[in-house]
Design a protein around this nucleic acid. Structure first.
Lengths: 231, 231
DNA sequence: TCCGTGCGTTAGGAACGCGTCAAGATCGGC
DNA sequence: GCCGATCTTGACGCGTTCCTAACGCACGGA
């Protein structure tokens, strides 16, 4: 757990690189930059960054291939940048192993929040948490049991599958396709209605206010995310 | 409980072997390596490692078979490495007797955390008292005997097998497949009706109210769990 | 303003899993 | 070779779970 995090910013637009660089450095991050996919892979190998901010619209190598290239040897958090219209591309990026995405144009505040979340998740994982405790419930992955208010919450096999996948990827955005494949099996991927039903059931059993979820968050058009609210 | 743990790393990709080796040695572990399943089984027999890190994607012998080969004579902790998509393979590995799995690509921090957890569990198990006492009965794993109300309860061999496996995993959920394999042998896994019959018999002999079990709990669709009620 | 899309919610019928019982089949000791 | 104990196998009933379809609602674009 380094004291000063190293961030690799990959974008071919000098304006964005500069803006991010100034803000990040001001907050005490060390910043490396790259303007192409090749340079990104090389610098990542050299500098072992703690997080990567990656624009999908790069010249040369496709951004998706950069993600795959990184994922061969590292699971460093990758936050993807893309323009609003490229929905398909964003989902492909998540399936390739990206952790989160931010649409351009983006506010610096949102970007920094996502980055902090990604770094926090990294630390949590290293601290190894097979038991997730929140203000409202406790999930023990090793024993496969959920406690809430002193008593056990009964989950059906499918419900448990959904919870387990989301919690294992804590803080990370999980695409609908990936969630379906991991819970129902590889031959699934389109049946998003299954997800709607079971996510609702999980929320009914775990969320304090199922209609306004705090833990099992919907990212419209993208997928779902399990998060533990900071406050 | 050795002072310096011996770790056996099994992988055919030299990069991964090297990266793990450097990190583990730096932390004071003794490291042995193997690049094939055959070599892994041989070195395990020679060096009696305290933990095994095993890549499933080996040339030659299947990784699953390596696990089975090890499990014939040792219950050394096995941490499995596999690629993200191979969910089915991971499940098969766990059923074959693996203790944990890490998806490639992995962060070194997570790997080390899992390793520490595995070694810690082993120490706990060795130190663990093989006598379980509840309000209604006492199970002595060492002598293979169950006492209830001052007199001995006679269990048939298969009944004892079921009890022993569940009690050894005290508190943990044991899947039907795992239970079948551990009691009846590796070629079983589907015959869940056996379980229904024998679980019922065990409950009739040990539970105060067999129809509403307090110790041998059914988790519908998932498996069984032995627990000692807190109150 | 109207439509299309995506998500949440609900309800009902089919399919499945579990407990139970009892009748063969198999094993082991005498 | 017999007999009791133990394990396998099948059938039945019941409760639960999963899938499916339909509806409502919010949002964004034409």
């Amino acid at each position: 757990m380094p004291d000063r995090f190293r961030i690799l910013v990959v974008d071919d637009e000098p304006g964005i690189v500069r803006a991010l660089g100034i803000n990040l450095k001001a907050l005490g991050y060390q910043v490396e930059t790259a303007a192409s996919g090749e340079e990104a892979l090389r610098k990542a190998a050299d500098h072992r960054p703690d997080a990567v901010i990656l624009d999908l619209g790069l010249p040369g190598i496709d951004g998706i291939d950069v993600i795959r290239g990184l994922r061969v040897w590292t699971n460093v958090p990758i936050i993807v940048l893309s323009v609003r219209e490229a929905e398909r591309e964003k989902i492909a990026a998540l399936d390739a192993g990206a952790d989160d995405y931010v649409t351009k144009p983006f506010g610096m505040g949102e970007m920094l929040a996502r980055l902090r979340a990604a770094l926090r998740r990294e630390i949590d994982e290293e601290a190894e948490a097979p038991v997730i405790e929140t203000a409202d419930f406790t999930i023990d992955l090793a024993v496969k049991r959920v406690m809430r208010g002193g008593s056990e919450v009964k989950l059906t096999p499918t419900e448990w599958g959904v919870v387990e996948v989301l919690v294992r990827h804590q803080g990370k955005l999980v695409s609908q396709t990936q969630l379906l494949k991991e819970v129902w099996g590889p031959q699934y991927g389109e049946e998003t209605n299954y997800l709607r039903v079971f996510i609702a059931q999980v929320r009914r059993k775990l969320e304090p206010q199922p209609s306004t979820p705090r833990y099992f968050i919907t990212e419209p058009g993208m997928g779902y995310r399990f998060q533990v609210p900071t406050a």
